[in-house]
């Protein structure tokens, strides 16, 4: 798109196509294209290279308005991980536990997904790989809030610095399950404040990502986003709208099934991958 000699109608069409197919959504796409058209007119340029640079700047600027550092200063720092089904919550927790262990932090993982078949075993396997402690439910189908409570309790008694709590995947439309999340949070807060609530979003998601974010913010008080499966062909442009509409920053990025495939969010790198 940017390899041509001058900016013409085709360039604009291609730009629009690229943004839409990157899941930015039609509204954001229109905004960005309008914005860039104005800039191109203002600087009176015809060089696609300039356009590319401006696009990168625009995106970087918009992605870096929020502070993406994790706040884990509390002891124990409690991290609640939430999201819809199949976005990669459990895998993220495994990687995150390892990520923290690399910084010599002690970690306990609470297996509060007591609903899905074998979810406890799955997170336990990850915890083991990451060298983290694990708190399992005492019986099958135990109330997730009580597992969360026990996890925090365990962290306090054993002086563990960070407690990560896994929750069952739930679609944002299920009122009862969303209330359960509110309850988990409330129960944890009886013992200690929650440091971070991370919402895991799948990069392949389309415009529904925004609805997911809104619902989880309302019910669980999300403080940060984790974007997973960025190693695929999906661009995850929808997170720009999510970040801007909700004011919640992206904090972590998942890029594979290996235990080290989790990094912090850097707008520069992210945009680089997005537009090349």
């Amino acid at each position: 798109m940017f390899a041509k000699r001058t900016i013409d109608d085709e360039t604009w069409d291609d730009l629009e196509t690229a943004l839409i197919t990157g899941d930015f959504g039609i509204d954001v796409t229109d905004q960005i294209v309008g914005d860039l058209r104005a800039k191109v007119a203002r600087y009176n340029t015809t060089d696609p290279k300039d356009l590319q640079r401006m696009l990168r700047e625009t995106l970087e600027e918009r992605f870096s308005t929020l502070d993406s550092t994790l706040k884990l200063t509390e002891r124990p720092a409690i991290v609640l991980v939430v999201g819809v089904n199949g976005v990669g919550k459990t895998t993220t927790i495994g990687k995150f536990a390892k990520f923290l262990a690399n910084y010599n932090r002690t970690v306990v993982v609470g297996a509060a997904d007591t609903f899905r078949a074998a979810a406890v075993e799955q997170v336990a396997t990850w915890a083991e790989r990451a060298g983290a402690h694990i708190v399992r439910p005492q019986q099958e189908g135990q109330d997730p809030a009580s597992v969360a409570f026990q996890t925090v309790d365990y962290a306090k008694r054993n002086n563990i610095e960070i407690a990560i709590i896994d929750t069952a995947g739930r679609l944002q439309t299920k009122g009862g399950l969303m209330d359960e999340l509110t309850k988990i949070r409330r129960v944890i807060e009886k013992q200690a404040p929650v440091a971070e609530v991370l919402l895991v979003l799948d990069a392949t998601t389309g415009q529904n990502g925004l609805l997911q974010a809104e619902a989880f913010i309302e019910h669980a008080g999300v403080t940060g986003l984790v974007l997973t499966k960025l190693d695929g062909s999906a661009k995850a442009g929808f997170v720009l709208a999510v970040q801007e509409r909700t004011g919640i920053p992206i904090k972590l990025i998942g890029q594979g099934e290996g235990i080290n495939d989790l990094t912090g969010f850097t707008p520069h790198v992210f945009v680089q991958n997005l537009i090349g």
């Binding site: 199949g86 799948d202 529904n208 695929g232 062909s233 999906a234 661009k235």
Partner: peptide, 15 residues
């Protein structure tokens, strides 16, 4: 395939 998938559905389906 997940009903929530976005534009990537095409690339994935083709693959």
């Amino acid at each position: 395939i997940d009903a929530m998938i976005g534009q990537d559905a095409v690339a994935t389906a083709k693959a």
